[in-house]
Design a protein around this nucleic acid. Structure first.
Length: 152
DNA sequence: GCCAACGTTGGC
DNA sequence: GCCAACGTTGGC
């Protein structure tokens, strides 16, 4: 089983949205590197931390489970969608997403500013300068360390 | 295939 | 709103 960090802007889709829905299709991935990871490496039963980006207090706010392998992202075909891609066709979709299930919302987020201070997490791709990936893999050790922290 | 111009991400 | 850093586009 692999562990991931998945970013979302809370103004678009937040941990509270996921908590309310219970599960959701993770749409809007429009980066080839991330798409390839979704398709080739993400598996049923993987776990992921939900990260709020581009907001007042960026950080890890919850935990979720991957409950499907990658399928075509329907928003690429939807002209009304912000994620519409005219180069996608139904027979050869370019973009994919997975379904995720809410597991937990932390009472206190693990803020980016805190993550930066923790030596156990100093190798996260998330922290690397210039990182543009909205989904990154983290090691089981890093994941377990995060899970041992008390978010309260 | 090169690369300039442009667009996007995301922290601050 | 600023800006660094990166990805994408498209002319040549």
């Amino acid at each position: 089983m692999k562990y991931w960090i998945m970013k979302s802007e809370p103004s678009t889709f937040s941990i509270d949205d996921l908590k309310t829905k219970g599960d959701a299709f993770w749409d809007g991935v429009r980066n080839y590197q991330v798409r390839n990871m979704l398709q080739k490496e993400m598996q049923l039963g993987d776990k992921a931390f939900f990260y709020h980006s581009s907001c007042a207090a960026p950080g890890i706010v919850g935990f979720m489970e991957i409950i499907s392998t990658a399928t075509a992202d329907p928003t690429q075909f939807d002209k009304e969608s912000l994620y519409y891609d005219p180069k996608s066709t139904l027979s050869t979709p370019r973009w994919f997403g997975v379904n995720v299930r809410f597991l937990e919302k932390y009472k206190t987020p693990l803020m980016l500013s805190t993550i930066r201070t923790l030596p156990q997490l100093s190798n996260l791709t998330l922290l690397k300068k210039g990182n543009r990936l909205s989904i990154t893999e983290i090691t089981p050790q890093e994941a377990k360390f995060i899970l041992t922290l008390r978010f309260s």
